[in-house]
Write a protein that binds this DNA or RNA. Sequence first.
DNA 1: GCGAGCCACAACGATCGGTTGGGCACTCCT
DNA 2: AGGAGTGCCCAACCGATCGTTGTGGCTCGC
Lengths: 309, 309
Amino acid sequence: MRSFVRAAELGQFQHAADELGVTQQAVSKRIAALERELETRLFTRTARGVEPTLDGQAFLSHARSIVASADRAVAAVRPGSRALRIDVLGLRSAQAVVMHDYWRSHPHIDLDVVTLRVNDPRAAVAAVEAGDVDASFRTVTDPAALPPGVQMIHAFDSPLELLVGPGHPLASARSLTPPQLRKHRIWVPGIAPRSEWGEFYDQLATEFDLRIDAAGPHFGDEVLLETLAESADVATFVGARDRYIWPANYDLRRIPVADPTPAYPLSLILPGTNPHPELRKIITHLGTLPKLPEPAWRPSWAIPDPPRS
Amino acid sequence: MRSFVRAAELGQFQHAADELGVTQQAVSKRIAALERELETRLFTRTARGVEPTLDGQAFLSHARSIVASADRAVAAVRPGSRALRIDVLGLRSAQAVVMHDYWRSHPHIDLDVVTLRVNDPRAAVAAVEAGDVDASFRTVTDPAALPPGVQMIHAFDSPLELLVGPGHPLASARSLTPPQLRKHRIWVPGIAPRSEWGEFYDQLATEFDLRIDAAGPHFGDEVLLETLAESADVATFVGARDRYIWPANYDLRRIPVADPTPAYPLSLILPGTNPHPELRKIITHLGTLPKLPEPAWRPSWAIPDPPRS
DNA sequence: GCGAGCCACAACGATCGGTTGGGCACTCCT
DNA sequence: AGGAGTGCCCAACCGATCGTTGTGGCTCGC
């Protein structure tokens, strides 16, 4: 592939061979193999070199894309000068959506979004400390326990929305207040009791006297959505930015909650010194996200938004 | 690469091997080779399969991009179901810019922009007839001479702008009319006498009594631009959409011409029957381009704009 | 504790990919 | 017109690689 690209750009097999450190015959064989595989002639041979045919021109842009991707791929795992790597809770989470948006507006950044296969935020702290990831969208409820060299900052607030099926009594509401959710069963499966989210829902339930049922195992989003779609009295919470686009969307409705807006405060754990240079831009971008509508409710451990630098 | 992607998606070497039609050992060796090359562990081996490591996750998205590009690359040259292929005069031409804009707003189209290495528009007609390209942004001045099965339609009008260096007497004008260009030498090198562009400039010069000097060989855009930049009495014409971004831009100025606006009418040669399905969308898109400001001047052979369908 | 399932290692044959050497076609220069 | 130079292709050779079969180690579940 590289031989093809360089040969097309330089117009001569010989020059491409010199650049690649092989003989001209090797390049010739590579191109010939490519042409045999594609059953197409990619170059017209002239007296002073080669020129891409129409097929060769069409192939060239894709070939460039391949070698560029290959370079990025090795750069992504090469220690030292590797791509910015950020840990998110899942590819459908608001965190991932925000990072995706950022990537779409900055297409040239070398960004890799990964998910640490751990539940304990302290493992995420260790991963940041060890350099396995450059930053992690997780929250430790006791910031004082952070080891030196690791800091946690406020990322953005994720306001909650109620997700209900078409048969639910609140299905046609345009907006809801927390007191209106009283007596309705809210099911958030797969939330561990002592986790950040468990604490969050505990505080939320206590504050507004809600019935938030965190019990029961989580059999996957499909099961949850199907249950919601068919039930007339079960609802759940999702973040406003969470990605919920399925092939079959079950006709579910997302209803914003306000007065006050309950929001989960997302944090970013990152090294205290020498963060990845691209990370600063992302933090700046996080600061430009729309603010939460006031009044808002946040759990007790929420970090105040730092002054805009 | 495909082995890696499928193994990561399926979570087992065995399943990936079955899909790829090789043995599990072969997949294992491929991954091992990849890991040796990258000097990184891409999977953690568990009792019930494999799971991507952080590096593996980071690598995965790039690997997906590579296989997708590879698939597109072969599709681009596979006869039968191949990508839409359009011939433009050059990658900096207004035609190419318009196609690039179209691609940016329709990223999923499989579009290949190529350049036929011919000067005669009849060769472009033959290429369309033979199916080497799906369409060509060229113009034959006698549409009646088109063979059956090939048609030519109006694409869009490319208004002219004057390109001058900072020392030229017209350099500070915000806009110009054709009569104001009289007595100024306009140099358009590399235009063959009997070609479409030669005819165009002939008619333009006659109409407005201009000094358009098409003589002299064309030594490349760099030479032309450098000449313009250093000369106080030479100017040239460029299309308003032509791409003229060089690392050193020589402080050249583009000055629109109006009252009337001289415009080169760009045509599209395409098969009369069974055009590529994506081509219809592009033709529709061409119809949505901003119209030429009136009054306008076009050469005698300009095709009237067809009624909007 | 034992079988099932999955991955890694070893050995072997076929194929691939590179090199050297030679040849042909074309251009340029004398 | 002829020779030097250049650029690509073909042939022969050889080492590396790739995929196969066979085997062993490991974990999980019954």
